[in-house]
Nucleic acid binder design. Structure first.
Length: 531
RNA sequence: GGGCGGAUGGCGAAGUGGCUAACGCUGUGGUCUGCAAAACCACCAUUCACCGGUUCGAGUCCGGUUCCGCCCUCCA
């Protein structure tokens, strides 16, 4: 596999420190709010990378930190009148909900700044002892000039930076570019004891200390957003390498930004979209798909239309899953040697699988890999169009192709199962409604049949008539109560037309589904039978 | 001002000098269908911001021009 290394500015063959093992550190969020879509991009990108490396047989150690001690958190906690550490803990907790929705696998460890004070203080002490840092009035600064090679990652020299500096120069610092390792506590701020008095760590030190602690002196891949290159990652290198004397990171990978109207989405610009707000309007798998449908280093412009397009595109892939499932229903595939068309299918899918892998091997090109996945989907659909469920060879061929298709979808994490809680009951009720509609169509009562379809459509349920019956599809589960309301209305209609067979059918099949229907003078009422 | 990256059809987006410029969305025609949807089949960029150059051959390499984004300040 080749990856683009920010440090060298080109794609390099991935050679891990130890064969078949990858150590990855990804910069996680500063927890002062719910995460926004921009935060979600690296999560999804690097989670997908992780899945792919595992797929390729690597043992992956994946660490993602939380920065839970920070100026912004302190500011926010003042505004809200809350304890800063509790505020951060709250958003860490909420982070996991958002991440789970996006199908992000938990990291092997999620270290937090607040729990690594001893490690951080020790690291700073060593930096001072080695001459890479100095103390001024309870603050400790990193002496940038002492670290030769500073600026290598971001491609700039110390002189450039000093020349173009827009920052106010703190007179106490030896040089404008020096950055804080430790900040003396101000009243009301969270603080810890240290050899320089009470205070808290600067922004960059936590990442190098925790990365080294969990992954060793040299790690394979360090990931994060583009904007972290400078100063965050530049400073991490300076700290870690001054400390250990060894190369800190072999491959630096940075994702591009999400923009809104071609403007960077960021908390400071205020044009950000919280992930959970987006997830209220679009399914999580569509959001995930959208985030990897573009190469990770390219900018990604956000608007609802793009998410809608992603939803439809992903829907095409999931339709294949649905069609396969339907095709396999009630049939189990036997081991049959494929021939003819079946062989062609399996050969084509295997070839496309190789293309998929080749795409990801080339700097993790998920956009290209998805292209292969669509072609696999297309091949399977095409085969299914003329396949017969009772033919053993068709079953075998489809089973094999579908297995690969699902496997590759899993590598990208885009096949997320919808919530299953009330769904079982809902599906049964839908089946009954389907049967009624089926009867109506047999009776050529198209008005009723269309009425039912329109009702379902209004609830976001798509009904599709096939030769074998009616199939229902929905993005999010409909409300059971609304379905029942409709079913009861239908039933009362049948009753008033003295179509008792249909009316009784509804009641009987509902009972079988665990729902009891009772007639009262005011109308019917329903309840779920106790188990 | 300094550094980095980008400009591909109606839209999004791949494209590792050389088969007919992937793939998705949209659109058009057809098959299927009571209607519809889904699926299937077919079609939809002589052209890759512009100008030069290298080469037998360039969207792909080099130089220049225009426009755009990002970083240099907290930020994924």
């Amino acid at each position: 596999m080749r990856v683009y290394n920010t440090l060298s500015g080109r794609k390099e063959e991935l050679e891990t420190l130890e064969p078949n093992q990858v150590k990855i550190y990804v910069c996680g969020p500063t927890t002062y709010n719910y995460i926004h879509l921009g935060n979600a991009r690296p999560l999804v990108v690097f989670d997908s990378l992780r899945r792919y490396l595992i797929y390729q047989g690597y043992k992956v150690t994946y660490i993602q930190n939380f920065t839970d001690v920070d100026d912004k958190i302190i500011k926010r906690s003042r505004e809200k009148g809350e304890n800063a550490l509790e505020l951060a803990a709250h958003y860490i907790n909420e982070y996991f909900k958002d991440a789970a929705a996006l199908n992000i696998l938990p990291a092997d460890a999620h270290p937090q700044v607040s729990r690594h004070m001893d490690d951080i203080i020790k690291a700073i002490s060593i930096l001072i002892a080695k001459g890479f840092a100095y103390e001024v009035d309870g603050d400790v600064y990193y002496r940038v000039r002492a670290f030769k090679g500073y600026g290598r990652l971001s491609g700039r020299s110390l002189e450039d930076m000093l020349a173009g500096a827009r920052v106010e120069v703190d007179e106490r610092k030896e040089e404008a570019a020096d950055f804080a390792l430790w900040k003396a506590a101000k009243p009301g701020e969270p603080s810890w004891d240290s050899p320089w008095g009470r205070g808290r760590p600067g922004w960059h030190i936590e990442c190098s200390v925790m990365a080294n602690k969990y992954l060793g002196d040299t790690i394979d891949i360090h990931g994060g957003g583009n904007d972290l290159i400078f100063p965050h990652h530049e400073n991490e290198i300076a700290q870690a390498e001054a400390l250990t004397g060894k190369p800190f990171v072999r491959y630096w990978m940075h994702n591009g930004f999400i923009t809104v109207n071609s403007e960077k989405m960021s908390k400071s610009l205020g044009n950000f979209f919280l992930l959970r707000d987006v997830l209220e309007r679009f399914p999580a798998d569509a959001v995930r798909f959208y985030l990897i449908a573009t190469h990770y280093r390219s900018p990604l412009d956000f608007d609802d239309g793009k998410l809608e397009e992603a939803r439809k595109a992903l829907g095409r892939l999931k339709t294949t899953l649905l069609l396969v499932n339907e095709f396999q229903q009630g049939n189990h595939s036997l081991k049959v040697k494929p021939e003819g068309e079946a062989l062609n299918l399996n050969q084509a899918v295997t070839d496309l699988q190789q293309e998929f892998i080749a795409a990801l091997d080339d700097d993790f090109n998920t956009a290209r890999a998805l292209g292969s996945l669509f072609e696999i989907s297309h091949r399977i659909n095409n085969y299914l169009a003329s396949a017969r469920p009772d033919r053993a060879m068709d079953q075998a061929a489809v089973a094999e192709a579908a297995a690969i298709f699902k496997e590759l979808g899993e590598v990208l994490g885009i096949f997320i199962d919808r919530q299953q809680d009330e769904t079982a009951g809902i599906d049964k009720v839908l089946d009954i409604i389907a049967a009624i509609r089926h009867f109506a169509r047999q009776e050529r009562d198209y008005q009723l049949a269309d009425d039912i379809r329109d009702f379902l459509g209004a609830m976001g349920i798509v009904s599709e008539d096939t030769t074998g019956g009616t199939r229902f599809r929905y993005e999010s589960p409909p409300k059971l109560s609304l379905l029942m309301e409709k079913l009861i209305a239908l039933r009362s209609n049948f009753k008033s037309r003295k179509q008792y067979a249909q009316a009784d059918y509804i009641r009987d099949s509902l009972q079988q589904a665990g729902i009891i229907l009772e007639d009262t003078r005011e109308g019917a009422r329903w309840k779920i039978a106790e188990a």
